[in-house]
Nucleic acid binder design. Structure first.
Lengths: 340, 340
DNA sequence: TATTAGCAGACGATATCATTGAGTGCTAAA
DNA sequence: TTTAGCACTCAATGATATCGTCTGCTAATA
């Protein structure tokens, strides 16, 4: 695209992102002091519409960007706008306090949501990439024990056992030994299924096998699905596009479902745009998604996501998100929260 | 109150709960086939308004119940309406699957929210009632360990340690020994503060004391505040009272704050009404709250709450809530999820 | 040829007004 | 004490006119 038409296009998107109102030629000319008459702008708008970058809400309305328009904008016209306020707030919350990673991520989501008035969410490392390393049993007293599962990436999960006399500590001990020898290096995803296969072995060796089997199965299922997750959605109520209750309801119900977030996190959309720092922007069903990945520990990675109407300040959002993920990596990067 | 006027009052509340529209004398007469003329009903309505049980939205509108009206209704006119659909759904989800308590509570909240279209939430046992029993350290490999905290009520919390060479496993071991001997029987609430007091002892005995101190402090703070919590709020979007975005925003923002839920759970409102089964109904700021407590383990207790507009089907809600808490108690009652 | 001025027409948004209907309160009769 | 009847209130609805913003087109201009 030629110089002027791009200039006009960018102005339209910027203006619409700010005001949420269809942009007209005259307003644009005045507000952005463009050195072209409104008629010229109108001509170019018509062209942009023909090319599919702009849309009209009705015949005599101003223009709004189409999804294709947003894509072009994000791919070619994005500018980093890092917000001093955000960086201050974040560094203050994350570096000054003794948060563990999970809390830090939650705080980050909350801050991001507050500063953008969009929905934010976080996804932990995908369990399908992790393998079981040990199962260790840790007796507490005669009636209870804690079982700790550790993956090769250092991720841990715990399960509390409490039992009456029928199950002896010995049984649990024997059970974990069997599981350890048979399930080491199993993908976390496949644990429940593999456990089914060794059920007969348990039956032969362990006294209260059905009870223990069932308890371990429950723990494994949870472990496999525990794609640590957090979402903060109420701030999208500030977006004018969701003053329509029906539309709001639709989105809210989606965002209330953890599976939707998992999908958003995993699906690498074919139409997605990648920034130089590896963030990803995509558009589905009148909703825009920006995600950024962070790596902590050896192979552990997670994602931060921002979700909202396509009319969002992409430059600012991407800058924020990348700042947050970089900050989290720098704090929790090598060996966890304990060495700074 | 005399017979007829109560009958009329109950009909008005029932009708309003169902329709969310101000109730007029004529409609009432027809719909509930009351053997009184509309004029009689009108007279009684006027009386009920004078007594403060009813309100008008404008001079010539029908009547709606006031907060005082709801209180009277709940205290004197409540009928148990247990829903077959709910009981089926719940027993199916809770008894057939191998959920741990936390997941069971989340599922229950989700189901309740879905069936009532109100906001639901859960609060775990208040940490102020629990004392630290042991701290046990559990080495995983040369570079990491899991630390388990156990309270007298059997509640456990874990903290992952990962460290580079500077901290030795030995140091952590020594540290936990000191903490164990000094902090046993401390209220969980007071752990962070007590830890400060024994800081000098750590300084004298442990090599990398500041780092370990900071890690344990973080863990203790989290433990003290970890009043295990869950909320499912998006269903209130179905309530006509929240088709006003401003009102919705206000409520949503409240319900998005974990502290608000904690307050709702702890504050035993002076105006609250208690049912025979120990549930509690209260009204604050144009919002109604129904809570029910369940006990599992020895002293561990938690609360389920339903929050929404005062216009809710109290009979049904109370019945549901009490069914759920009873079910949870029966399944997780004595010794945890493993013996059924 | 590219740009601009000017004008007619489209259309959402807003204000005004009359109408409708569900509801009340009051009075007088049963 | 209850009821029938009537006058009055007021939100909701729909029709109508007006306004302002915006487009698209045409003709003039650089």
């Amino acid at each position: 695209m030629k110089g002027r038409i791009v200039e006009i296009f960018k102005a339209i998107v910027d203006e619409f992102i700010q005001t949420a109102e269809p942009v007209g030629s005259k307003t644009l000319m005045n507000k952005y002091s463009l050195p072209y008459s409104s008629a010229t702008i109108r001509n170019d708008m018509q062209l942009l519409e023909e090319m599919g970058y702009l849309e009209k809400t009705h015949t005599s309305s101003g223009r709004i960007p189409s999804t294709k328009g947003y894509q072009y904008y994000c791919e070619n016209l994005l500018e980093d706008k890092l917000d001093k306020q955000l960086t201050n707030m974040l560094t203050a919350t994350l570096t000054n306090s003794r948060l563990d990673l999970e809390d830090a991520i939650q705080q980050s989501c909350d801050i991001l949501a507050q500063m953008t008035n969009l929905a934010t969410g976080a996804l932990g490392p995908d369990s399908s990439s992790q393998r079981l390393e040990h199962i260790k049993l840790f007796p507490i007293d005669e009636k209870s024990a804690v079982c700790v599962f550790i993956t090769n990436t250092g991720h841990t999960e715990t399960k509390n056992f409490r039992f009456e006399e029928e199950v002896s500590l010995n049984d649990i001990q024997k059970c974990t030994e069997i599981l350890n020898s048979r399930l080491k290096n199993t993908l976390v995803d496949e644990l429940p299924q593999k456990l089914q296969l060794i059920k007969p072995i348990l039956e032969n060796n362990v006294y209260r096998h059905e009870m223990l089997f069932s308890a371990f199965l429950g723990a494994f299922i949870k472990f496999a699905n525990d794609n640590f997750y957090y979402a903060k959605t109420s701030n999208i109520l500030y977006q004018p596009e969701y003053s329509d209750i029906e539309r709001l309801k639709q989105l809210m119900e989606m965002l209330d479902d953890t599976n939707v977030w998992r999908q958003l996190g995993n699906n690498s959309n074919q139409l997605a745009i990648k920034t130089s720092s590896g963030s990803e922007l995509s558009w589905v069903n009148d909703v825009a998604i920006v995600k950024s990945t962070f790596r902590v520990g050896e192979a552990e990675e997670g994602q931060l996501m921002v979700v909202g109407p396509p009319r969002m300040d992409y430059g600012r959002i991407v800058a924020m998100l990348e700042y947050v993920t970089a900050l989290i990596e720098s704090i929790y990067g090598k060996g966890g929260p304990n060495e700074r």
